[in-house]
Amino acid sequence: MVEPVLRVQGLRKRFGGLAATDDVSLEVRPGELHALIGPNGAGKTTLIGQLTGEITPDAGQVVFCGEDITRLSVAARVKRGLARSFQIVQLLDDDTAEANVALAVQARAGHSFRFWRAAGRDAALLEPARALLEQVGLARHDTRVADLSHGERKLLELAMALAARPILLLLDEPMAGLGAAESLAMTETLRALKGSVAILLIEHDMEAVFALADRITVLVYGRAIATGTAEEIRANPAVQDAYLAEESSP
């Protein structure tokens, strides 16, 4: 058995009387594309928060590449190779797409306590940034983020996360709000990424999930009720009861 990239054990988080994360355990293997699905209110956002470090769990452990990262800050986790994209895009709106990615490249390249040399024309930052934009298929490098389309921003989110050279990529609904053609393009981009990096994909677009995922975990009311391949999940009666009935008419 290979050491998993991410091992979540007995994670719990309560908000008042609500158990948003209720004893969740989960494993992501190297190179695997693991999808996390669940109806609205299943606690996906809370779980992601605990994986990225924005929310501290009440109990349980998050182990990344054999290291317990449960108490590490957001930035420290990114440094170890756990990068994420946001469902609601979080970008530097006043800057160009290229400048955004260049900053992410800079963050990976070591500390930024460098006060003198101009960063804006630094080839060591710009060239990797351009390469990443090409990799995700975003053509308008010099356009301000505020002027990009929603689909382009979603691509930029992906490029920002890839700039960290992650071992595990946490993608929070990369298809949300995309049109059919854009969704298809994003699916192809993710397919191309598959294998080179482990991916935990949170997504509502079932077509994409079943097309891409090696394994799927279903989250309902804060509990992970099932994990398995696409066929196993489709055939699982508990999943059908709890989830597919509701989700079949989105």
Binding site: T52, E54, S73, V74, A75, A76, V78, K79, A83, R84, F86, Q90, L91, L92, D93, D94, D95, A99, A102, L103, A104, Q106, A107, R108, S112, F113, R114, F115, W116, R117, A118, A119, G120, D122, M160, A161, A163, A164
Partner: peptide, 29 residues
């Protein structure tokens, strides 16, 4: 002017625009 254009300045500017994003690319803001 040098500071603002430097890598440090880019980080400051990024924090102004979106601190959450800066943490998510691995910057201890």
């Amino acid at each position: 002017w040098r500071i603002v254009g430097s890598r440090f300045g880019r980080v400051l500017e990024g924090i102004r625009q979106n601190e959450r994003r800066m943490a998510a690319i691995g910057i201890a803001t």
